[in-house]
Write a protein that binds this DNA or RNA. Structure first.
Length: 402
RNA sequence: UGGGGCAUCGUCCAGCGGCAGGACUCGGGUUUUUGGUGCCCGCUACCUAGGUUCGAAUCCUAGUGCCCCAG
């Protein structure tokens, strides 16, 4: 029986090629474009936002060209609550949010996936650069998998262990890095659990964007073949998120003191939300050496600056943890690992190397201890753990540990 | 107001007779479906007035300001 797939169409190149590839493979396809922001009339957003009129037209045009149905879905309310509110609240708490993570979790693989399954679709597809396979297949192709030495080795053992513990039960799904290492998006997809992975297709995972995807788009005559990659926060097209938050709150952010690590006042800041841990630019404080934001105290409304050394941390506590790998097995593995911790690779931010670490299951949440100290661990950001290039799960950084 | 020291980019320092150099800040760019990091490019300065010299930020004199020690 032909599988029915709902494709999340942003109007960009990636999702367009996604639709084309699935059509080629014989899926029964339909395209959907989510309307996410609260512009006054449908699609009057500035260029660069998620659902400008031009983007909607691009998505519709591609579907028309492919001969598949297209629809726009109004998800503004979910987006506002699940993504924007969290974004604002996190900043106000002195932390640094990653709205794309929430958007994937609650929109693309949340509301959209729910909608799809409610409407007779078997799966949702997106243009993300990540690969979903069965664990069996992942283990089979393991030898040629690239990796960063040690953690890749660790990964093989872990994955084999998971397979062993799972026995011959229902298939286990793995989420791996995209083949295009420059575009890999596995980090922002860690909220895809087994259930969601079973109903998700990422046909671009094995392709290289500039080499393959754009070529296919050109060959198919897609208008958006040369369209720029999206970047920045889609609901803040001009990138001035501090101003966005001020607008949304209806008042200016209070000024506060900029301190050094001893507590001495170095200057003033125009709102603590303008800063993030590890930030160097825009501090307005001159010294013999560059200074970085090492702490943000929302309650005291202060920003503390220090040296690169002050940014080093050996571990972190994460909350809001989600397993991409089978949860029961992962928890069993953690229990068995005990005080030694579970050896994994950990990524504390997007576009950052995976670093060897040990994972512990503490009372309050997950704790990670890095083999070598990490720089600039920012609360609010996602930490994603890997076995080799396979995503095991992730959470939200609650606190860095010295 | 006795003695000593210092006055150079917005900030901190280098240059001590031959076209003023760096770091930090700031601005721009690049990278990036978060923020940040990184990388590239750029910006602005010799306290004032005389003098010595072919030539002075650099030497001399005076002035002004600041600092330290003696009070």
């Amino acid at each position: 029986m032909t599988k029915r797939v709902l494709i999340a169409m942003s109007g960009g190149v990636d999702s367009s090629v996604t639709a084309y590839l699935l059509k080629q493979r014989g899926y029964e396809c339909a395209g959907a474009t989510m309307r996410l922001t609260c512009s006054r009339s449908f699609g009057d957003d500035a260029p660069g936002s998620c659902c400008s009129l031009a983007d909607l037209e691009d998505a519709e045009a591609v579907c028309e060209r492919l001969g598949i149905p297209w629809q726009a879905l109004d998800f503004r309310e979910v987006f506002s609550h699940a993504v924007i509110d969290t974004f604002v609240r996190t900043y106000e708490a002195g932390q640094t949010p990653n709205p794309c993570i929430d958007c994937n979790r609650y929109l693309k693989f949340g509301a959209l996936l729910d909608y799809a399954r409610d409407h007779g679709f078997d799966a949702v597809a997106t243009g993300h650069y990540g690969r979903i396979r069965t664990l069996e297949k992942t283990l089979a192709i393991r030898p040629e998998a690239s990796g960063d030495g040690q953690s890749a080795e660790v990964g093989v053992n872990l994955l084999a262990d998971i397979a062993k513990r799972a026995g011959a039960a229902s298939p286990i799904w793995t989420l791996s890095c995209g083949a295009d290492t420059a575009k890999d998006q596995s980090y922002v997809l860690y909220a895809l659990d087994q259930e969601r992975l079973a109903h998700t297709l990422l046909p671009l995972g094995g392709l290289i964007k500039e080499r393959d995807v754009r070529r296919i788009a050109r060959e198919q005559g897609f208008e958006n073949a040369a369209k720029r990659d999206s970047q920045g926060i889609c609901f803040v097209p001009d990138g001035d998120f501090a101003n966005y938050i001020e607008q949304r709150r209806g008042r200016a952010l209070p000024e506060g003191d900029v301190l050094d690590t001893s507590g001495a006042v170095l200057g003033r800041h125009r709102g603590a939300i303008r800063y993030t841990i590890g930030q160097r630019k825009g501090l307005g404080v001159a010294s013999a050496h560059p200074l970085y934001v090492t702490a943000i105290d929302a309650a005291a409304n202060t920003v503390t600056l220090g040296t690169p050394e002050d940014l080093l941390a050996h571990g972190l506590v994460a909350d809001d943890w989600l397993w991409s790998a089978p949860a029961a097995i992962m928890e069993e593995l953690l229990d068995d690992a005990g005080a030694a911790g579970l050896a994994v690779g950990a990524k504390i931010r997007y576009h950052h190397p995976t670093r060897p670490a040990r994972l512990f299951w503490d009372a309050g949440g997950m704790r990670l201890a890095f083999d070598e100290p990490e720089r600039g661990i920012a609360p609010g950001q996602a930490v994603v753990i890997y076995a080799g290039d396979v995503v095991l799960g992730g959470g939200r950084v609650a606190q860095a540990l010295a």
